[in-house]
Write a protein that binds this DNA or RNA. Sequence first.
RNA 1: GCGCGCAUAGUUCAGUUGGUUAGAACGCCAUCUUCACACGGUGGAGGCCACUGGUUCGAGUCCAGUUGCGCGCACCA
Length: 891
Amino acid sequence: MSEEQQLSKAYDPAEVEAKWYKFWEERGYFHGDPNSTKVPYTIVIPPPNVTGILTLGHVLNNTLQDILIRFEKLRGRETCWVPGTDHAGIATQTKVEAALRKNEGLTRYDLGREKFLERVWAWKEQYGGTIIQQLRTIGTACDWSRERFTMDEGLSLAVQECFIRLYERGLIYKGHKIINWCPKSRTALSDEEVIYKEEAGHLWHFRYPYADGSGYVVVATTRPETMMGDTAVAVNPNDQRYEGKIGKKLILPIVGREMELIADDYVDPAFGTGAVKITPAHDPNDYEMGIRHNLKFVNIMNDDGTMNADAGAQFDGMDRYECRKAVVAKMEELGYLEKVEDYMHQVGYSERGDVPVEPRFSEQWFVKMAPLAEPALAAVNDGRIKFHPDRWIKTYRHWMENIKDWCISRQLWWGHRIPAYTCTKCGEIVVAKAQPELCPKCGHNELPQEEDVLDTWFSSWLWPFSTLGWPDDTIELKRFYPTQSLVTGPDIIFFWVARMIMAGLEFVGDIPFQDVYFTSIIRDEKGRKMSKSLNNSPDPLEVVKQYGADALRFTIIYIAPVGQDIRYSNEKCEIGRNFANKIWNVVRFRLRQGPATMKEPTLQGLDNLRPDDQWIIASLNQAIIDISDGLANFRFNDVSKMLYEFIWNKFCDWYLESCKPVFNGDDEKLKQNVLQIFDYCLATFLKLLHPVMPFVTDELYHQMGFASEDESIMLTTWPTPIEQELLDKLGATQEAVTNAEAKFELIRAVRAVRANYNIATSKPIDLIVAPASAEVAQYLNRDLTTFKSLLNAGQLDVIQDFQPDVPCGIAVSTSATAYIPLAGIVDLDAEKARLEKQEQELAKYVDMINKKLGNKNFVSKAPEAVVEQERAKLAEAQEKLDRVREQMKGL
RNA sequence: GCGCGCAUAGUUCAGUUGGUUAGAACGCCAUCUUCACACGGUGGAGGCCACUGGUUCGAGUCCAGUUGCGCGCACCA
């Protein structure tokens, strides 16, 4: 082995990846400098839950952000990617409570608020860094010096400021409403935190007797346990079945309460029995009706989903589902159960608690959303903010146009405590950053703070500017706001994206970001959502260990179509691993030819290029254009395919093979020329690939000596298209591409003949190539050495009008016919069969074009260029067909 | 009920404004350890582009409808 042979045969990512991340981070390459004169490019990370661990969803999401950041940095922008985590109120508090119960047998109430919060902070310190650390393993170029947490002092001040401003504008209010209540977490939820699941339930038909003994009304319900809270029965005023009965008194069974039969348009006479039991304190629609008809509100449940004393002594303390059974049994026993039907319906579940939510009448804090929504809707409608894919605009628009007030208070301890103080004497509410000494209204000195905290999203919606120092007018805010791109999942378009747009416009007076890229949802290979219960979510860290971070990054981009779900399986990472290995081996091959020709390879000083050199330069130039364009337009999937196509199918399959005879030859001048081009291509595609596969590209950039030890590919500049003048001078033209591709077609045709006769690729063959034209002859003669090498030819002759006098294997391509003298082994039948097949295909094709051109409408209506193209295709195919037929005759 | 999306090779998916004989990856078949790579090379098989109409000289691509699947929103107890 020569000394430059230092690369192992296969790429092993583990060591390389650890080394480079440390190198980049320690040298501060990820830092965004607000004093830089470069144009800024900012992204704020969608903050993962502080207690969370890395999932494939995070990998996809953060890889995309990293690609954008690395690309824009190379393109010369001052990039700043702000990372951080959110405090995830319910999730975190639940976790700590569970641990407390398990380890010490205590509840949060045993500890008290203050002590409990100390425990949560301790938990956060211990486990909170996990996901942040894990993100580093996939290479994210986050500016860690700017890492933020939604409960940080600065961000907490931002939350207070925002609350106070909205309150003063009259957009925050406290009021009694029916809200979604999670009996497990014992807190209010916003409408968005309720997930509806279709469930098989029942429709129970109950008889409610008239007080005068004149029979009964049958009501249908899915929730018998709420009947103790009934204060009326409603029917449609136009329902003839109940004509004359409106206003009659009914006796609520079990309870014995007297209530009225009322009429309301809300009731659908076609559904069930046309009579609805009304429970104003336990159903949002009934609540509205309760207001309209001035009904009594009877709350029969505790905050944990058990029944209270108002439900009656026999049900007091029972769980709501236990009570359901008991009520049904009791009604049946009393003879009031008419029938039970199976019924499919939607049941709202708490997103975090995963238990059915309970509509609950209570006093909460709300944000009036309509005034905030209006400008936010306009920002998307007029294109100041773009969505990718843009169909999400419809979803956004629909939500914004039907927006409801946001319930922001949570009956939790972990979170931002509401900065409101109520005077115990006069009830005056003071909203302020600090505890007021005296009530401004009555002068009383007792004003306890609200016990409740704010919804976590009430801090997240400030994230794009609170992380940059708002409400202070910081240099970061000036330079890095508005941010450029947001990459997130479409599942939080309401929770987060929409609210950030509202907050940005309201508090900073400008949009928070220009582009929103919505990622795919990752499913398993069977198309199921990844979930803990199915145990089908692979651990990304294991995947990284097995395949490498670059491989995972590349693969996930390669399999992620825009706006569609991804079907992921670990085995797919072989795509990325194999690709990394391929590139590794290109460099391994290259280093065997000696050190790099120059430190930062250029195309300067080249002359006398081979046709294949011209072809690869033209192809590379196209790749630069297409890949840059793809990245600038969020077409990540396309970019991964273009990179793969250029590097593997063009550079490795053809160019590298084309270079071998030169590298092994003794024309030193030529060799230097070709090495320079090789290096130029290599350096360029490593840069193009770097945003997607940062580790292996920096490693190889150094292995090649394109960067010295204390430099990095991260600090180089993004390849720009080659100037037209230089392309022309080098001969890297479209014509060079066309000619080379025709040559490759010919080589493939010869290889097919080879395969047909089972002649090993390694065995040289003699052959005669008969070009279809003088131009082709001239082209091929320009570089017979390479041509011969690609064919692995022993003796090669280019003879324009060749007539074979011995039995030959025959390969017909568009530009030439190749004859392979195979005395003794030519199988005439096989030869005939192969030519016949080719003849049939060509004849069909020629026929098709002939028909097209024979169509007067086509010729007169299609654009001239298209017709011309068809004519050219026909001529070419016809010529080829003639040659195939000629060969068939010869057999 | 309203809205959105999807249906293309055995599988997973590309196919940009309508215009080469519809592509890739994986898998499959054959073959080769050849001096970068078997995580590889070479060659090959495999498709009524869900269905029915329409627009057009021309439709996988545009339009309408049908079927099937997925998602979101709103729900009548």
